[in-house]
Design a binder for these strands. Sequence first.
RNA 1: GGCCCAUUCGUCUAUCGGCUAGGACGCAAGAUUUUCAUUCUUGAAAGAGCAGUUCGAUUCUGCUAUGGGCUACCA
Length: 510
Amino acid sequence: MERKVRVRFAPSPTGPLHIGGVRTALYNFLFARQHGGTMILRIEDTDSTRFVPGAEDYINEALQWLGIGIDEGVREGGNYGPYKQSERRDIYRKYVKQLLDDGKAYIAFDTPQELEAKRQEVANFQYDASTRLQMRNSLSLPADEVQRLLDAGEKHVVRFKIEPNRDVVVNDLIRGVVTINSSILDDKVLYKSADDLPTYHLANIVDDHLMEVSHVIRGEEWLPSAPLHVLLYEALGWADTMPQFVHLPLLLKPDGKGKLSKRDGDRLGFPVFPLEWHDPKSGDISSGYRERGYLPQAVVNFLALLGWNPGDDREMFTMDELIKEFSFEHCSKKGAKFDFEKGKWFNHEYLMNMADDELAQVFKPVLAQHVDPAQFSDQYIAQAVGLVKSRVNFVGELWDQARFFFVRPDSYAEKDVRKRWKPETPDIMRDLIEVLRGIGDFTSHNSEEIVLDWIKEHDYHLGNVMNAFRLTVVGECKGPHMFDITELLGKDETIARIQAGVDAIHIIEN
RNA sequence: GGCCCAUUCGUCUAUCGGCUAGGACGCAAGAUUUUCAUUCUUGAAAGAGCAGUUCGAUUCUGCUAUGGGCUACCA
């Protein structure tokens, strides 16, 4: 049966989208694009008590940053709206009524307190075929009593009437056939009295059906309720157009126990959110990949490989390549522990492979925190960045490594001074100034040749001279190739720095 | 407790019955270098256990163990 591919990512706006959710969105997106299908973003805000302002905007911004495009949604529009569940009340009511009329669901009057009491009283209490007649509902109460309660405006929920002892089969594209007995399912609440909205289960099935979703790609935490969803499709008469289910393995904590949670980020020192999140209630700030200096392409590549592989040794993938290669056959069944070190490596690789002028643009905002970038040409910044990018993992670290290209050293590393600044050094440095002054072509290669000849000629200690030189120009004994630095800095600046160093550095005795 | 899912190096994973079990991250050693990084070379490191099927099991089946998920008027 050929069916147009339509998938949805359906987060709840209860906080920032976390990295596991991002991966789910990514897989949905890859699958949609691969099949020329449609990617829907549906906001599942049926829990009014957990609504967090700003979360929906955050979700949109995060997906956009990562290049996960949405075809239909609250912002994008589409022919299957509204795309926010809280705006679909009338639709859900209609189907709840249908289930009630068909005898597939029933009204229950039990209060939360009564349910709580029952759970205290009976160990492992489950609201199902074996217990529902002991409860206060339209199945146990006489019809006129039910009507009286309804007329009196008594609070009530609608529960799904699950027929016991039936094997329910869920066909999962990653896990294969999963069979469970309906007796272990409880009569799930489909419509809540507390906020006059459906629960996830009902809203989800109704929306997926109405939006003609072909594949439900979601986290493994939904696998246990998948049989319930199958039953719901049947009860509503939609079994023949039921979507394919795909349950993705979870992202687990790096240090052992449980699935990766929103709290782990700051506890373990790495972001679990794509973007920095400012909690509107507590004021807490949680760090994000973007603000940490991650490139979105690197995050996408890294996340894609957490639970999926191409079947061979390749690891570097652009979004287009992922779209081409992605498949559920190569999705893992096993939860993946989140390996932050590997994420760093991916970012390093992307940073290394990025064109210098492109990287310079990303770096500019960081640079602006320290100096006025307008003092430097784009080309200068690009060259500086190009010389140091191999030694950083993040854009933010570029400043630490390239700082001396933008400001003169204001101090000199004591450890290096101790090691490399000898009594004869100032004189040698003064001579070096003269040597440099005489160089016409100040390019890296040419100055290197001249200076090394000069060192050889005087039989100086290469390491001592070069490191003293480096000390005056950089402020410490580290950084890229010395003459690449001087070429970019220019003759005047190089000489000025040596002079400043000679004036400022004093010998430190061991 | 009940139900479901999973189980290859520390981590992410390849293998769709023939394996001297491959790759990557990380780690260690070495080479290169005026420094640091990059780069290159090398190394240590795995099939949870027990049965069964088979000429042959990492690959198939069962049991056990372990890990994970779910068990709300949350999603």
